[in-house]
Design a protein around this nucleic acid. Structure first.
Length: 460
RNA sequence: GUGGAUGUAGCUCAGUAGGUUAGAGCACCAGAUUGUGGUUCUGGGGGUCGCCGGUUCGAGGCCGGUCUUCCACCCCA
């Protein structure tokens, strides 16, 4: 037999029990809060038709899609000419499925497919892995989980305020307090673009100013210059972006600067309204920061955009989202606006690990390990396990008849707090020997007393 | 996709200008302790030095390719 070194593909990970307990804690917290806000669960396949996926994430996104080869002889419909035309022409002939890249587009597909059964506004949450053929780095994986919550079929800005509230509640529960929720509006970006005299270059502008915080004003200027922005418009741009102060101060200064721009004025009004709603909805301080330089990549956003960043953590954003006015139109359902948000659990995990925010999870381990003394005591041990479980204890049995030393060592390594020793002496006296692993102390008594002893020590 | 760094035992790492049977700590297993874990002591197992090829009398160390991981770009959760 040819053996191979076990390995998993680049950018993917196994999650062992210790990690899963913590991941589940995050997922459960998110799920519970989503449900508390009225979002209902949805799952969609890992695979989508490639036509559903392409064209929604920009050229970059299409590059990062995992495509799946057609089954069987995937070359049967391909001839030399196809190959000579390059991979872009070849691709549709050899692949008609792909792994989903995010949860929003499959959601839009679902909504379009089920439009007659859905009551709008429709709120759903979805917690599933997505795949991107990106080059892995810190906090960046090829398979990772997203936790989306979206409302579709309402243009009300209350939906945006709800999302602000949702994010605050979840992060507070997870113990992540040192974060900011950055917010901007695509119309404001369009307004800025108009104001600096480059209305047709919003997309390029967005990509550039999104990096402002990371690479600084000088490098951004140079990049814009290279993209054909005039020195005048660049100067004007930074006059706008330099505006600082409280959210209200920035908003009022910007409305002066952008007063000639219709989309700019509308965007600012929307942000103002969202803040007004959020002030009355969010429990405590909502930690929203209006940031005109926030751009975000995904091309389907049209309204408000959000991004959550944890302060002093170089991991990028742990979540983001925004409003999309027309996502379902490519599936034949125009005029349905939606807004959504997504947490990246993997990054939330990394941050919580670094900040040591995970609680101890003692409830996930067994309370007692029942040992098997020798072949003659197996049946008794099984019966004891049955009775202890009947009484509600979390109990496991060491399945092999090996030295007590080994069984105790197993309990020690798994941090199981109690061990029951059941040898011929105990069986003869109808007693159980209970060893407290922390103190090393052990006593013998009947079953009910043993259960009480375990329960009383546990509850302390 | 582009560029840079990295890869030696399960883990963290040594390994001097290429030169015998590649080391340590931790972890693991066994015994001291035949009804008892954590400490201690004694002993033991485990490496085709990421993979493939090349140079050389000889390669863990040099060269080429490839894969992994990390970093930067790109982009993003």
């Amino acid at each position: 037999m040819v053996t191979q070194k076990p390995a998993i593909p680049k950018g993917t990970r196994d999650f062992g029990p210790a990690i899963m307990v913590r991941r589940n804690y995050i997922l459960e917290t998110i799920k519970k809060t989503y449900q508390q806000f009225g979002y209902l669960p949805l799952e969609t396949p890992a695979l989508e038709n490639i036509s559903v996926l392409t064209g929604n994430y920009g050229d970059e996104g299409d590059q990062l899609l995992f495509k799946i080869l057609n089954s069987g002889d995937f070359l049967s419909k391909v001839d030399k000419a196809d190959i000579d035309q390059g991979y872009k022409k070849l691709l549709p002939k050899i692949s008609n499925k792909g792994l989903k890249y995010d949860l929003t587009v499959p959601f839009a597909r679902f909504v379009a497919m089920n439009r007659h059964e859905i009551n709008f506004p429709f709120k759903r949450y979805q917690i599933q892995p997505v795949w991107r053929a990106d080059n892995p780095q810190m906090g960046r994986y090829r398979e990772f989980y997203q936790c989306d919550a979206d409302v579709i079929g309402s243009e009300s800005l209350i939906c945006e305020a709800e999302i602000i509230s949702l994010i605050n509640q979840i992060l507070n529960q997870l113990g992540i307090h040192d974060f900011i929720l950055k917010m901007n509006h695509r119309s404001i970006l369009a307004g800025i673009s108009e104001e600096i005299g480059a209305p047709d270059k919003v997309a390029v502008l967005c990509v550039a100013i999104d990096k402002l915080e990371k690479i600084g004003q000088e490098k951004v200027s140079r990049e814009l210059e290279a993209k054909g922005f005039t020195p005048n418009s660049i100067t004007r741009l930074f006059e706008i972006l330099e505006v600082s102060g409280t959210n209200q101060e920035i908003l009022s200064k910007l409305s002066q600067l952008l007063k000639k721009s219709t989309p700019g004025t509308e965007g600012l009004k929307a942000i103002q309204q969202i803040f007004a709603y959020a002030d009355n909805l969010v429990i405590g301080d909502h930690r929203v920061q209006f940031d005109p330089s926030l751009a975000r990549g995904l091309s389907y956003y049209t309204g408000a955009i959000f991004e959550v960043q944890v302060n002093n953590q170089e991991i990028g954003s742990i979540g983001g989202g925004g409003r999309y006015d027309d996502l379902t139109s490519i599936f034949g359902l125009p005029g349905v606006s939606g807004v959504g948000f997504s947490f990246g659990v993997d990054r939330v995990y990394d941050v919580m690990e670094k900040l040591q925010l995970f609680p101890e999870f003692q409830n996930t381990q067994s309370q007692v390990l029942v040992t098997i003394f020798d072949d003659t005591t197996v049946i008794h041990a099984l019966q004891i396990v049955r009775e202890l479980r009947k009484q509600g204890l979390t109990v496991e049995i060491f399945p092999d008849t090996v030295k007590l030393k080994k069984q105790l060592n197993h309990a020690h390594k798994k941090s199981i707090p109690f061990v029951i020793i059941l040898g011929p002496d105990e069986i003869a006296n109808n007693q159980l020997t209970l060893k407290n692993m922390a103190t090393g102390h052990q006593t013998s008594q009947d079953l009910n007393t043993t259960v009480n002893l375990i329960n009383s020590t546990q509850s302390k």
